[in-house]
């Protein structure tokens, strides 16, 4: 059973990967193209009636395509094919800060302990880690910095406005 970190807890992941069968609880994760088709009424063989449907964004995907559906999405998975891939940080911030998405925002793929803090500041609250990462160390890493300079959605100290 794949495990994820969500809200600093280590949990079993209920969401199958894109292309995998729906879980026994009816959870299914689609690529953006499939998700938009499904939202448009297309019948997809992997999506049973009454399924709970999540979406995965790849780096070149435009998260704005999801705007009509943000209220119904239980999970948006932002995929990082490589750790050097940086577009997902922007996708995360846009979803959380600009578009007000409040569901689970997950980083998956090449997600290593040393990116966790940055991802969390961009609004990610769940992490599907790369192979070989120690979950307890990752949870501790979320607390690595107690201060930061940028005003972000996480409400951490904003030193640029520190005189207030």
């Amino acid at each position: 059973m794949r495990q994820i970190i969500k809200a600093t807890q280590l949990l079993a992941d209920e969401w199958p990967l894109p292309g995998e069968e729906a879980s026994s609880t009816g959870a299914v994760r689609l690529t953006l193209i499939d998700y938009l088709a499904w939202c448009g009424g297309a019948a997809l063989p992997g999506v049973p009636a009454g399924a709970r449907v999540a979406v995965r964004l790849e780096p070149a995907d435009d998260e704005a395509d999801l705007l009509p559906y943000l209220g119904q999405l239980p999970l948006i998975d932002v995929h990082f094919p490589k750790s050097a891939e940086g577009r997902g940080y922007t996708q995360g911030r846009m979803l959380r800060e600009r578009h007000g998405y409040t569901g689970e925002l997950r980083a998956s793929g090449a997600v290593f302990i040393d990116q966790i803090y940055l991802l969390a500041r961009c609004g990610f609250d769940a992490f599907e880690l790369a192979e070989g990462q120690d979950p307890q160390a990752v949870i501790a890493e979320l607390q690595r910095f107690s201060v930061a300079y940028q005003p972000m959605v996480d409400g951490l100290t904003q030193p640029l406005r520190r005189h207030r």
Binding site: Y89, T90, Q115, L118, C122, F145, Y149, Q150, L160
Partner: peptide, 17 residues
């Protein structure tokens, strides 16, 4: 200095092209 602080450990822009 304002730019230095803003850019230091900027979460969104640490993995630029």
């Amino acid at each position: 200095e304002i730019i230095r602080q803003w850019s230091t450990v900027h979460p969104e822009f640490n993995y630029l092209p």
